[in-house]
Design a protein around this nucleic acid. Structure first.
Length: 503
DNA sequence: GCGACAG
DNA sequence: ATCTTGTCGC
């Protein structure tokens, strides 16, 4: 049973069998025309409810992946159908993804440019209160430049201010101006190619390619030929800021990685062997950490450490406090954002309730299952020298592992709690396990070694402390820190189970 | 060539 | 990480 679809441009009835790209709702002739068109610049819709209100488009060429932007714009410009589409309507239009994931940031008048140029990382501040939008080319041969693009006619004042502060911060780092050609060469052992030049020419290429691209602004077609030249010459209007943060962070990860222990300590081995759970009443404790955020603010967050007593999963200790996260989230470098916020929680625990010091801590993120084998769980474990393991809710692409068809097929074979399969890197190392942790939760979770624990033990522990899809220690940390924020609390909150209650 | 990549 | 709405299954 096929649905009726009409071309968004000319209105002709479409033959659905001929549409290759399901997100497209254009007939072939219109598609061809559009495909060579640029987004109209400064041609934003002005209707009250439109999510493109106040939006400026860069003169990107339309293609099948950004067609939905064009159809949205077109729809609202023609002043018809100004009501937002219902979810089912959106699904039929194939624009569900766009609506649910991007609409909120679009509303703020933010602008995100996805670089198509290799060898650089582009950053655009999306909102003065939110995280920096980071788009990274993960080609392993890419140098690690963070590039900020802000043509002055596209981004407004607050982003200019944000960019200034970023640039100041960057330039204070000694390594920014250092010669990259020698000190970092050893990183190549891990498969990274490090840029030799101290200025990133490809980035300039990116910039000029934006500025010189012919701009077919629909409203000003007379000026089309002149404008690119003009803008390209007035380079003083544009600011370009660079940072080589990835190089520094990769080096740090490699240094820590040498200290990583992916085997059970005698204590963990004994615990898993059941020697800590005999009827003499001895129990063990499992910690869980997580950080929750307020919508629209990626700096102020609530960090939480929960400790549960096993095997009854009773909460014995918890601390939540507001933290400032100064670093942006960059996939592969999550630890640099979250570890500084999580570390103090363990200091408090030691001071206040050392009797509840966890035998192992579950971390909301990956451990060895990571592009460089050193994710958040490893990082936290090594820094604090405690046993940790990673529990991630979605799969990170790393070392040949990705959510491909084969992976999806394997996931479907998992029938119940305890079922799982190894995640094997392209160099045949088992980096983690895709594991169904509970019968009621068909979605698996990704377990990997953090520090001082083997994968087998980590899997056993994950199963041992799960009542739902997410193992209880991290789940409690997640749920409670979210609730803390929801109630607008700001003062640290601590809970310690008294000795009497405990028995 | 582009996209996708924990939280 | 955050947002919303709808849907499915027990």
């Amino acid at each position: 049973m096929s649905l009726m679809e009409f071309c968004s441009t000319c209105g002709i009835l479409l033959d659905l069998n001929l549409i290759l790209d399901q997100s497209a709702t254009f007939c072939n002739p219109c598609f061809e025309t559009i495909n060579q068109t640029k987004f109209p610049q400064s041609d934003a819709c002005d209707c009250e409810i439109c999510c493109f209100k106040g939006e400026n488009f860069m003169d990107q060429t339309l293609n099948s992946s950004n067609l939905h932007l064009y159809s949205e714009l077109k729809q609202h410009n023609c002043s018809q159908n100004t009501k937002p589409l219902s979810q089912t309507q959106r699904k039929r239009k194939g624009r569900n993804k766009y609506k649910t994931q991007s609409a909120s940031s679009k509303k703020k008048g933010s602008f995100v440019f996805k670089s198509s140029v290799k060898t650089c990382i582009s950053i655009i501040p999306s909102d003065k209160n939110t995280d920096t939008q980071v788009d990274i080319d993960w080609d392993s041969s890419s140098p690690c430049y963070l590039v900020e693009e802000r043509p002055s006619d596209v981004l407004n004042d607050w982003s200019a201010a944000a960019a200034e502060s970023w640039s100041e911060e960057y330039l204070q780092d000694d390594w920014v101006n250092s010669d990259l050609s020698s000190p970092y060469v050893h990183l190549d052992d891990w498969g990274f190619t490090i840029p030799v030049s101290s200025s990133p020419p490809d980035t300039m290429g990116l910039t000029s390619s934006i500025l010189t691209k012919p701009n077919s602004n629909l409203k000003e077609d007379k000026n089309n030929e002149e404008q690119p030249q003009h803008r390209n010459n007035s380079s003083g209007k544009n600011h370009h800021l660079f940072k080589k943060v990835g190089v520094k962070w990769k080096r740090e990860q490699n240094e820590y990685c040498a200290k990583l222990l992916a085997e059970d300590t005698p204590e963990i081995a004994a615990l898993v062997a059941g020697q800590r759970r005999k009827d003499d009443g001895s129990r063990y404790f499992v910690g869980g950490v997580d950080i929750s955020f307020i919508k629209g603010n990626n700096e102020d967050a609530c960090a939480c450490l929960s400790v549960l007593r096993m095997p009854d999963l009773k909460l014995v200790y918890q601390r939540m406090e507001m933290v400032k996260l100064t670093q942006p989230y960059i996939p592969g470098f999550l630890a640099f954002r979250e570890v500084p916020a999580l570390e103090p929680l363990f200091g408090h625990l030691k001071a206040v309730a050392p009797q509840y010091w966890p035998d192992i801590t579950l971390v909301d993120g990956n451990g060895k299952l990571h592009p460089r084998g050193f994710g958040l769980a490893c990082h936290l474990g090594v820094v604090l020298d405690i046993p940790t393991m990673g529990v991630a809710k979605s799969l990170i692409s790393a070392q040949g592992i990705s959510e491909d068809e084969e992976h999806k097929r394997l996931k479907r074979t998992l029938a119940g709690a305890g079922d799982g399969f190894d995640l094997i890197s392209d160099s045949d190392e088992v980096l983690g396990k895709c594991l169904r942790v509970h019968d009621g939760a068909p979605n698996p979770v990704y377990i990997s070694v953090g520090h001082k624990v083997s994968l087998q033990s980590a899997v056993w522990l994950a199963l041992e402390c799960s009542m739902f899809r997410i193992p209880e220690p991290v789940r409690r940390a997640d749920l409670d820190s979210r609730e803390y924020l929801r109630q607008g609390k700001t003062e640290p909150e601590q809970f310690v189970l008294s000795h009497d209650e405990g028995n």
